[in-house]
């Protein structure tokens, strides 16, 4: 925590990108206050209007205000992706730590399963799972978790193996620490920074994957104002009402770029190569 605050003061890239991240979150939270219309309100006489003074981003096929939908989409998409990344982070890290710390059969089993998953092309497996479970945001999150946890597990495991060898872990054993205590007090705090950086850097990519699944019909369902879904709905009018794709697409693009840059800056700040 202290390092983060120091980072804000010293590293300009981190300060700037953190500001934008907070700005994004603020927009997402403030959507109900800023949005001029209810994103679900369909005034069908106004369908397919081009951007104008009343509707800055135009209207969609049911006459809903595109600008409001993009704003609410921020809340929707951001919260979904943060939930997704958190779930993957927790599950992946836990499995990796367990495999790395306890070794033996547990390690073999977990790593064999992880190896199997690597051999599947990720997006396709996610589509298959989401297809079987049915299209919904929760199922899309489940599908992407199944496909992505292995990266975190491998990373956590290899970090645990490195940390395990360090003297202070041996000391902790000799001092009479229980496994739980050692994991909690000695192992986790020393691998967490890198794991958190990985998760932060992944937000951008996961946002694309979630939008991709919704675009294909396997994620959020109508009438949800989710950006990926809006891209899909806009695709059908690409030639006649391009604003329906442009604005959600732009929103995704900007969000992804901001989070990617932020993740990079976070790595610089939290770099575990300390001056020991």
């Amino acid at each position: 925590m202290q390092t983060l605050i120091n980072g804000l003061k010293t590293n300009r890239a981190f300060a700037v990108t953190s500001f934008f991240v907070l700005l994004l979150i603020a927009v997402a939270l403030a959507a109900p206050l800023i949005a001029p219309y209810d994103p679900l309100e369909a005034t069908m006489q106004n369908a397919y209007l081009a951007p104008n003074a009343d509707h800055w981003f135009g209207t969609d096929k049911l006459g809903r205000d595109n600008f409001s939908r993009v704003l609410y989409g921020a809340a929707y998409s951001l919260s979904s992706v943060l939930l997704l990344v958190t779930v993957i982070f927790v599950i992946g890290t836990t499995l990796g730590v367990v495999a790395g710390y306890f070794g033996g059969k547990v390690d073999v089993v977990i790593m064999r399963v992880a190896d199997m998953m690597i051999s599947f092309p990720g997006m396709i497996l996610a589509i298959a799972i989401a297809g079987i479970l049915g299209g919904s945001l929760i199922n899309a999150i489940i599908a992407l978790t199944v496909v992505t946890w292995t990266k975190y597990a491998r990373l956590a495991r290899s970090m645990v193996l490195k940390v395990k060898k360090r003297d202070f872990v041996e000391a902790a054993i000799v001092n009479g620490g229980t496994s739980t205590h050692i994991l909690w007090k000695h192992i986790l705090p020393n691998i967490l920074p890198l794991m958190v950086i990985t998760a932060a850097s992944d937000i951008g990519a996961m946002m694309m994957e979630l939008a991709g699944l919704s675009f294909l019909g396997f994620g959020s369902q109508p009438p949800a104002p989710e950006w990926g879904l809006m891209l899909n709905e806009g695709r059908q009018q690409l030639q006649t009402a391009p604003w329906l794709m442009i604005f959600p697409g732009l929103a995704i693009f900007i969000t992804v770029v901001i989070f990617n840059l932020w993740g990079d800056a976070l790595r610089d700040v939290l770099d575990p190569r300390q001056e020991e």
Binding site: M208, F215, L231, R235, L238, M245, G249, F253, V256, V257, N260, L261, D264
Partner: peptide
């Protein structure tokens, strides 16, 4: 690096447009 990431994101957008086409 950042330049590569920006290009990749732009390519992604372009790709989406193509796929839609």
């Amino acid at each position: 690096n950042k330049a590569a990431k920006l290009t990749a994101a732009l390519a992604m957008m372009g790709f989406l447009a193509f796929a839609a086409a």
